[in-house]
Design a protein around this nucleic acid. Sequence first.
DNA 1: ATGTCTTATTGTATAAGA
Length: 273
Amino acid sequence: MSLTIATWNINSVRLRIGNVERFLKLRKPDVLCLQETKCPDEFFPHQAFEALGYKHRLIQGMKSYNGVAILSKVPFTATKIHHRCGKEDCRHIEAALDTGNDPILIDNLYIPAGGDIPDPGVNDKFAHKLEFYREMAEWFAERRPKPRMRKGLRRIAVGDLNVAPLEHDVWSHKQLLKIVSHTPMEVELFGNMMAAMDWIDVPRRFVPENEKLYSWWSYRNTDWRKSNRGRRLDHILATPALSSAIRSHHIDVDMRDWEQASDHVPVLATFDV
DNA sequence: ATGTCTTATTGTATAAGA
């Protein structure tokens, strides 16, 4: 079966539920992973998703900040809510998708943005971000399939990881080296997390590393398209067991122009599972 | 880099986070 996964930092699911519905009708992903829902669970707009066939929903939200959700047409065989760095701040949920074959595990992540100053000694938010990356690398390493497991493990991780790892994941590598999201320290920890599970960077399977690729443009630019000072903060990662199943990818850049747009646009990938 | 958007509140202006 064909499986399309989308990830989107929605920056308030209630404010932008109209845009979510429009996106789902347009792209019809099988699974949508949202971050920054900013919505306590009791207020989550379930009916909008139910009406469009997303009958399987795992949500973990809170007041004001953060919040993640997995909305799926595909049933779950298991779900988990994870607490990271000793906090309960709604940043990691996990579901097993019932694809008929081995279930595919999907992690939906909202990694801390990290504040403005890239120094963990003076900026607690940056320290939290680094700690989150270290914890994820360790957690994935513990789940890495043993060499004797020849078929490997089918796992997909998506979300707003708040790091643009490659030179051409930002508009100016040189000018952003000291800007949080592209500092060498963050990029190194991102790399450690990638190595922990041998993750494949799915969009970069299709777009060469010397081409610009972004999923986020700041609200602070008056004309985002003209200045085009973007960053690739939103990611889709897949394990080697899914390597031959990867079919296509798409970043919905034009959605940055939609009425009352999020500052992030959806990233999609299709697998033949 | 600048400077915008969202949420919440000792609220109709301000602060915090991104």
